[in-house]
Every structure is written in structure tokens, then in C-alpha cells.
């Protein structure tokens, strides 16, 4: 391997990272955040359901 190859690879990697960051800087390029329905599901499964199960368990 010549000395220029690692440098070329590093430049290529930097360019690829830059391409990815540029794509993700626009909202259209990003994945969707948790929406209201997802948050409702999380609260139902992570708060309401445990509250019910824990109450039942306490009286067993």
C-alpha cells in the first residue's frame, strides 16, 4: 500500500460522512420522530398497563 492510499481513503470517508450529514440536515431526509400516536402507545404500555398490573398484583 502506498502512502497516498490511506489519505485518499480518509478523504473519501470524510466526503461520505459529509454527504450523509447534508442529507440528514433537511427534515425530509430524517426519520420520523415519535408522533402523538406513538407517544400515546408508549404511555399506555409503559404507564397505564403497569399501573393496572401492579394494582392487581398488590391485592393478590
Amino acid at each position: 500500500m502506498t502512502g497516498t492510499e490511506p489519505k485518499r481513503a480518509a478523504r473519501g470517508a470524510q466526503a461520505e460522512l459529509e454527504r450523509r450529514i447534508a442529507a440528514l440536515e433537511s427534515v425530509a431526509g430524517q426519520g420520523g420522530d415519535l408522533d402523538a400516536a406513538s407517544i400515546a402507545w408508549l404511555l399506555a404500555l409503559g404507564v397505564a398497563l403497569p399501573a393496572i398490573v401492579l394494582t392487581i398484583g398488590w391485592f393478590l
Binding site: 415519535l34 408522533d35 400516536a37 406513538s38 402507545w41 404500555l45 409503559g46
Partner: peptide, 10 residues
């Protein structure tokens, strides 16, 4: 996206 991940995670 989060919509497709929230329930599978839980």
C-alpha cells in the same frame, strides 16, 4: 420512523 418502532420496542 418512530411510528413503526414504538410498539415493536415495547
Amino acid at each position: 420512523d418512530g411510528r413503526r418502532a414504538a410498539i415493536p420496542v415495547m
